[in-house]
Amino acid sequence: MTFKLIINGKTLKGETTTEAVDAATAEKVLKQYANDNGIDGEWTYDDATKTFTVTE
């Protein structure tokens, strides 16, 4: 399955996707991606669209 991350950061905005077997696995990968890029904020997840959003 494809999961999307929408980034609403102070210095970085955009989106990325990852392939994962489930939402929990995708969340780990996407949170690591955000952490690697210095993004720390509030996370939400929409199961209907398989989209995570992080807002700083």
Rank of each mutant, 00 (worst) to 15 (best):
F52V: 01
A24K: 12
I7K: 02
T11P: 04
A26F: 01
G38P: 01
I39W: 08
G9Y: 07
V21Q: 12
K4L: 09
V29E: 08
I39Q: 02
T51C: 06
N8K: 12
Q32V: 07
T49K: 07
K10S: 10
F3W: 08
D36W: 09
M1L: 13
L12C: 14
A48I: 11
I39E: 02
K13S: 10
D40A: 13
K4A: 06
D22T: 05
D47E: 14
I7D: 01
G38W: 05
K4E: 04
V29W: 12
A23I: 11
A20R: 03
D47A: 14
T2M: 13
T53N: 04
T44L: 07
D40N: 14
I7N: 02
D40M: 14
A26P: 00
T53G: 03
Y45P: 00
T18Q: 04
T55D: 06
T25Y: 06
G9E: 03
D36H: 08
Y45T: 00
I39F: 07
T11H: 14
K10G: 08
V29N: 11
T11L: 10
G41F: 03
L12S: 10
T25F: 09
G9W: 07
L30P: 00
K4N: 06
K10Q: 12
G14F: 14
I39C: 04
K28M: 12
E56K: 04
N8C: 13
K28F: 09
I7R: 02
L5G: 02
D40L: 14
M1Y: 15
F52A: 00
E27D: 04
L30W: 04
T53R: 06
T53Q: 07
I7M: 10
I39S: 02
E19L: 14
K50H: 13
L12N: 09
N35P: 01
K31N: 04
E15P: 04
D47S: 12
D36I: 09
A20D: 03
L30Q: 00
L5F: 04
N37K: 13
T11I: 12
V54W: 02
K50Q: 11
T44A: 12
A24M: 10
E15A: 09
T16D: 03
T18D: 02
T25M: 12
V29Y: 13
D47W: 08
A26E: 00
A34E: 00
K4T: 14
D22G: 04
N8G: 05
T55H: 06
T44K: 10
T2D: 07
D22L: 03
D36V: 09
K10R: 13
A24S: 11
Y45H: 01
D40E: 13
D40H: 14
T17Q: 11
T49A: 08
T2P: 05
Y45N: 00
F3E: 02
I6R: 05
I6A: 04
N35S: 14
V29T: 10
T44N: 10
V21E: 11
I39H: 04
D36R: 09
K13N: 09
D22W: 03
N35L: 15
G9T: 15
E15F: 14
G41D: 01
T16W: 15
E19A: 07
D22M: 03
T49Y: 05
K28E: 08
T16N: 05
V21P: 15
K4W: 11
W43G: 00
K10D: 08
T2F: 11
Q32L: 07
D36A: 10
G38Y: 06
T16K: 12
L5A: 02
I39Y: 05
Q32P: 02
D47C: 06
D47F: 08
T16G: 04
I6K: 07
A34H: 01
D46W: 04
W43D: 00
T17R: 08
I39A: 04
D36Y: 07
E56V: 13
V54G: 00
K13G: 06
E15H: 11
E56T: 09
G38S: 07
G41E: 01
I6F: 06
F3S: 01
T53Y: 10
T18Y: 09
K28V: 11
G41M: 02
L12Y: 13
D47T: 07
E42A: 09
V54L: 10
T2S: 09
I39L: 07
E56H: 06
T11S: 13
A26I: 02
K13E: 06
V54E: 00
K28H: 09
A34R: 01
T55R: 06
D36L: 12
A26L: 02
I6N: 05
I39P: 01
L12F: 15
T44W: 08
G38K: 07
Y45S: 01
Y33T: 03
F52C: 01
K31H: 08
D40I: 14
E42M: 11
E19P: 05
T55Q: 06
T25V: 09
Y45V: 01
T49M: 06
I6P: 00
V21R: 11
T51D: 01
A34P: 01
T18S: 04
K31W: 06
T11Y: 14
K10V: 13
M1F: 15
Y45M: 01
E15G: 10
D47I: 09
W43V: 02
A20F: 04
T49I: 07
T49R: 06
T18G: 02
A23M: 13
V21L: 13
M1W: 13
Y33L: 06
D47Y: 07
T53F: 08
K50T: 04
E27W: 14
G14K: 13
T18R: 06
T53S: 06
A26T: 00
E42Y: 12
T11N: 14
T2K: 12
K13H: 11
L12P: 05
V54M: 05
T2G: 05
T44G: 05
F52S: 00
G41T: 01
G14P: 07
T11E: 09
G14R: 12
A23R: 13
D22P: 01
G14Y: 15
T51W: 02
K31V: 06
T53A: 05
K50A: 06
F3M: 02
K50C: 07
F52H: 01
T44V: 09
G41W: 07
L5K: 00
T49P: 02
A20G: 04
N37S: 09
G14D: 10
T53V: 08
W43S: 00
K31Y: 06
A24W: 12
D47P: 13
D47K: 08
N8P: 03
A24T: 09
I39G: 02
E27H: 10
K31D: 02
T2L: 14
T51S: 05
N8V: 14
T17W: 14
A34Q: 02
E19Q: 14
W43K: 00
T17L: 08
T49V: 06
G14M: 15
T16C: 12
W43I: 03
I6C: 06
A48F: 10
M1G: 11
Y33D: 02
T16Q: 09
N8Y: 12
E19I: 15
G38H: 10
T17C: 11
G14C: 14
Y33H: 04
K31G: 04
F3V: 03
G14H: 14
E42R: 07
I6W: 04
Q32E: 10
K28T: 10
T49E: 07
T18L: 11
F52D: 00
F3N: 01
L5Q: 01
A23P: 09
T44H: 12
T51K: 03
N8D: 09
T17N: 06
E42N: 10
L12W: 15
A23G: 05
N8E: 08
V29L: 13
T2Y: 09
D22S: 06
L30H: 03
T18F: 11
F3I: 03
K10C: 14
A24I: 11
K31L: 07
A48V: 12
G41Y: 02
K28W: 08
E27M: 13
Y33E: 03
N8M: 14
E15M: 13
L12H: 14
Y45K: 01
F52E: 00
A34S: 05
A24E: 13
K50F: 10
K4G: 04
A34G: 03
M1D: 11
M1S: 12
A20C: 08
L5D: 01
V21D: 11
T2W: 12
